[in-house]
Amino acid sequence: MKALLIAEYRQGKLLESTYELLAFAERLGAEKAFFFIGAEAEAPHFDGKVYFAEAAKYGEYNPDLHKRLVLEAVQKESPDYIVFLHSSYGWDLAPRLAAALKIAQVSEIVGITADGFEVPACNAKMRRLLKPVTAQAVLTIQSGAFSYQGEPGGTPSLVPVELADSASRIEFIGYEAAEKKEVDLARAEVIVSAGRGVGKKENVEIVAALARALGGELGATRPVVDAGWADHSRQVGSSGQTVAPKLYVACGISGSIQHIAGMKKSDFIVAINKDKDAPIGEVANVLVVADLLQFIPALLARLSK
């Protein structure tokens, strides 16, 4: 069994998460080769084949050209699995590649069993076990689900891939950094975050009051930020801040994969949610099943004593 692992490269650097692909391939027991578009000096540390193209020529983000380059490597390598991270790079390219090859695609794999690949469904409340029907398949793996232990090492043997025609429909203008910060959550020892369960903007104040009572900062989920109820710098999660405070209190937060990615390293996690099945319960040390609008005022009354 062979796996072609698609490395990620951004702003001139190989992304560390690339090595999670190695951990996944090891779990599969697959023979491994990398595919890498970047600068030669940044190639993955790995004793084996690395299909390589220059980012200087093909861009860091160019799904048109990158798809065709991966297809070149697939032709040379004939892998059983083409494996991406489930990331803004991976979920962009994977379906295009799968459709071009007319082969199965399984997204956001969190586990491997004898019967197939395990993926989340229904906002992480359920799981599905999926099996590709085709001989080859495109896979994306959830970031953090397969962690690579140890120091990557080795000397890659680069196999160049090229396109005769590098004309493309897409023009990459550049990157924009995240907006300026109202707060640096990474420094906070205590973070109390508001989710959509607060219901409306005015209720964010109840959560903010709990944050003050605990000597901490207010955090928020993405829908709360998108609705303009909290500043973007307070967003915790894969597209916001990654935090690891001593205490994290999640109020009215379901516990989506993207939110949990940003706070699961907290020392102690308390969740307040009216839904006992909310996936936040999977990472919480304490889950209080209650309506936050009633519960938090009752809690504040006790904390002020």
């Binding site: 019967d115 999926l130 304490v286 099943v289």
Partner: peptide, 26 residues
């Protein structure tokens, strides 16, 4: 091109304390 073998709720592993009941006691 993909076959669904099954759907199931996630295994409840490492789950901490779950507190339920009267708001004041909680």
């Amino acid at each position: 091109l993909v076959q669904t073998e099954k759907m199931y709720p996630p295994e409840k592993k490492g789950r901490g304390l779950v507190l339920e009941g009267d708001v004041n006691e909680l």
